[in-house]
């Protein structure tokens, strides 16, 4: 049995309890493990295979998440470091100017992110590999993108359209994006909620919320 087969079979074993929703006992044994990065049981399941001499797992297109994340952290590190040099050191003679700490932070981020990049590309962290698979299996991107788009629209709509108007719409649309099909009910709940918040904050607590261009009777 090659190292590759071992890896695959160990993974299948580690994964199967989660797919087995009909078996509550096994399902529950796996559940805390998913939330606990330090769980030794899962480590044990995945370790023997990954302790193969090169310590690497075969390439898998679904594991790009951690790689992209590590690369983004590295990019952020380079940016922090780069812009640190743009901070003027100040005219006053000082022991430590405004640039020293940013340089320290930038170097730290670059070093940590480099290690993370190497780990992500080698796949040498079995817990991460397992998590990435699990996430890839469960993630739907469409609702995430829709929610982000809604929130961005909301923040631009707030001032011109008014607080309670935009909030009621936001509530109903978010619920719809997430799969609620009783749009009329959701819209009503949203409207009541938004008006309640508006009166509580704007009228009672004195925290100003935008009324909108078209002011209604209240």
């Amino acid at each position: 049995m090659s190292a590759y087969d071992e890896t695959v079979s160990a993974r299948e074993e580690a994964r199967s309890p989660r797919d087995d929703a009909a078996n509550p006992a096994r399902n529950d044994a796996a559940n805390p493990a998913r939330n606990d990065a330090a769980n030794p049981a899962r480590d044990g399941a995945a370790n023997p295979a990954n302790d193969a001499p090169d310590g690497a797992v075969p390439p898998d297109e679904r594991l790009w998440g951690p790689r992209i994340a590590a690369l983004l952290f590295l990019a952020a590190g380079v940016a922090v470091l780069g812009w640190a040099f743009a901070i003027p050191e100040g005219a006053i003679e000082q022991d430590v100017g405004p640039r020293a700490f940013p340089l320290l932070v930038g170097v730290g981020l670059c070093v940590a992110a480099s290690v993370a990049v190497v780990q992500a590309f080698r796949g040498s962290d079995p817990a991460l590999t397992e998590q990435a698979r699990e996430e890839a299996r469960l993630t739907e991107w469409r609702p995430v993108a829709a929610l982000l788009a809604l929130l961005v629209c909301y923040l631009f709509a707030l001032a011109p359209c008014g607080y309670w108007q935009s909030t009621a719409v936001l509530f109903a649309l978010v619920a719809r994006v997430l799969g609620s099909r009783r749009t009329l009910r959701d819209a009503l709940i949203g409207l009541v909620l938004a008006l309640a918040v508006y009166f509580l904050f704007d009228r009672l607590l004195g925290i100003h919320l935008p009324p909108g261009i078209v002011r209604l009777a209240f």
Binding site: A37, A38, D43, A70, F73, A76, G77, V80, F101, P102, V105, G106, G108, L109, A112, A113, V115, A116, Q119, D125, A127, L128
Partner: peptide
């Protein structure tokens, strides 16, 4: 505390420090 991945924990920490700057 996230002992499995000190590198990733440190990434998160340094990004936070950068935001504080």
């Amino acid at each position: 505390v996230v002992a499995e991945a000190p590198a990733r924990g440190l990434c998160s920490l340094f990004l936070g420090l950068a935001i504080g700057l």
